[in-house]
Design a protein around this nucleic acid. Structure first.
Lengths: 339, 339
DNA sequence: AGCCGCCATGTCATCGATGTCAAGGAAAGC
DNA sequence: GCTTTCCTTGACATCGATGACATGGCGGCT
């Protein structure tokens, strides 16, 4: 490994002058510049980026922390961020937070150690106050979920609106017993979707039924289990609103295994193959690529102009994609028999 | 940003002692250890990896370059690598190479410039000789595809064997006109799968038909198009072997759209929902998590012990998962009418 | 008691690039 | 000719963690 000092000795100048030549500092005579350049060529000088970034105190890397990089939604977001970052010569380091909220902080700290230049996060815990002390070291942008106990930029989908629309759509098809399956309400995203769901019920004058609200699942398997429990109720739902795509991937197979695809289904979040399943699954489309792009743009803007002010709260629109899974009408109005 | 010096001052010791405590050096009394630890906690000390790696001269970052991070197979591989890397306090930077082979080199060079400690790559081009000059700076491990014009560690699936088995399986179900859909044969992975397919045909005494070999698609849409072309042939196939999961995601919907799910289908590579589609799709399972784990283990081992020798070539077994899509038998033995 | 040696802890230098400041020299202006 | 100013170049410190080596104290051994 040849260093600037080696080149300097060879060219008969100081290391600082080599540095100047390397960084195109105009205050170098043409003569020395050439001497240094040929010395660099002869010694095949390659700068040590480790030393450079160490001195800068910050690396040209953006951290991305999401619940699961293998989740199609977050994978698509990541891809988009990566493309935007590459245009600015920035790399991205990705981390999966998993599904245990208590580990979030230590995982993030492991990432932060690398002196990242910015952080894009979709948190899983109910408290991100631990991030506060880094907010003046590097910008932080939240995606998919709002920051809790912290003030920071965030880009979320219209959770309430999307859930409202989905539920309303099911109601319009004659469903009155509509269940919701989701993860913890500690996550604001889920809470908003629950609220949208409840608001749509209220709006239509339907009774809320706690039995039909099954939250707290951690993954697709949990959601599948929740689904089975729902259908085993004395008075089961005729429609299910799955509050995120990760869970829909468990719910659909569960319905199919029980041979109950007559149950209507809407998923908050599109997923691969949703359109070719039978019945194809209606979804609220979140547009992960848009999320990725705007988040990347924001973090790059924050890095470039740290003092500039931006709108913190950003809500992205969602869109109902109607497919077959919500077209079924309740076979028997069981709820009326009971109520 | 609190440094070791800050912690040292707080605990009334020298920075070196803090370093010792942090690195579990036994030569510290229990008393000072506790004082230092509580100082670290109070000041929320997070080590600066940049400083550490700069001193070590080795970066704590592993680069991962795959055709597409959003592809479920590579996303799963990435997730697994990330977990293994995190245990060693290493971060991963991921890059999508896209589908244009001519861009591969420049994308990799951009990544490499950030001084990485190792590289895991699933290349898209037909020549990785450009990587040779970095081979003594950091270890390189290939996954999914063998290195071309370069000698390096690689972990690939049994492409030939898997394709052979898939094709043979279709033959066993009575199919004689079997098509293959895939990407460029410049990629050795695809070529091997093609060879496995051809070998199975030969083995069964079936005629090779160039019309039924449709390679060169770049993505799912291209594969869907290829599929339509195949079915429009005067003498169309009764079965299709899709040589990778990325393409199967295009092929299945295409068959469904044409209402030709009677065409048998086997996919090299499992994909989300393949088991709940109707008909569910038979696949050759590649086990991305295994690929990720062994690749991560190898690169970490290479980083830890650069001089140790390892087996370069590693072939991972694949497994046929039989589902519904290959159970259909050819309705009419059209090929016999023609041949 | 005196000496040896171990153990806890500290001091200093180091990794490579670069910001700061100063020195020296040449050109320009009076 | 002398001063002013700019321009080129270099010496030194710095970023944070840590290896090499030094120091000082305490216990054990003869």
């Amino acid at each position: 490994m040849t260093t600037m000092q080696d080149v300097a000795t060879r060219a008969g100048v100081s290391a600082k002058t080599v540095s100047r030549v390397f960084n195109d500092d105009p205050h170098v005579t043409e003569d020395t510049r050439e001497r240094v350049q040929s010395a660099m060529r002869e010694l095949k000088y390659v700068p040590n980026m480790l030393a450079r970034t160490f001195r800068e105190g910050k690396s040209a890397v953006i951290g991305i922390a999401v619940p699961d990089v293998a989740d199609p939604f977050f994978a698509a977001v990541t891809k988009e961020i990566e493309q935007a970052a590459r245009e600015q010569d920035m790399a991205i380091v990705v981390t999966s937070l998993g599904d245990d909220p208590s580990l979030e902080q230590s995982i993030i700290e492991t990432t932060v150690r690398h002196q990242i230049g910015g952080l894009i996060i979709a948190p899983i815990s109910a408290d991100q106050s631990y991030l506060a002390r880094w907010q003046d070291s590097f910008p932080i942008v939240f995606i998919d979920r709002t920051p809790l106990k912290l003030s920071a930029d965030y880009f979320v989908e219209d959770d309430f609106g999307g859930a409202f629309e989905a539920t309303q759509h099911l109601i319009a098809h004659g469903h009155t017993r509509i269940a919701i399956v989701g993860d913890s309400t500690e996550v604001p995203t889920t809470r908003l979707r629950l609220e949208g769901y409840l608001a749509a019920l209220d709006n239509a004058g339907l009774r809320r039924d706690e039995e039909l609200v099954v939250l707290g699942s951690r993954n697709a398997d949990g959601a599948a289990q929740a689904c089975k429990t729902l259908l085993a109720l004395p008075c089961p739902p005729t429609a299910i609103f799955s509050s995120n795509a990760r869970f829909s991937i468990g719910v659909f197979p569960a319905l199919q295994a029980l041979d109950r695809t007559d149950i209507a289904l809407i998923s908050y979040g599109d997923f691969t193959m949703a359109d070719v399943l039978r019945p194809s699954v209606s979804v609220i489309d979140q547009n992960p690529r848009l999320v990725g792009r705007v988040a990347a743009e924001r973090i790059l803007a924050r890095i470039a102009t740290p003092t500039k002010r931006f709108r913190r709260k950003n809500v992205l629109p969602v869109r109902l994609i109607e497919r077959q899974s919500c077209q079924s009408v309740p076979a028997v109005p069981e709820d009326q028999m009971v109520s």
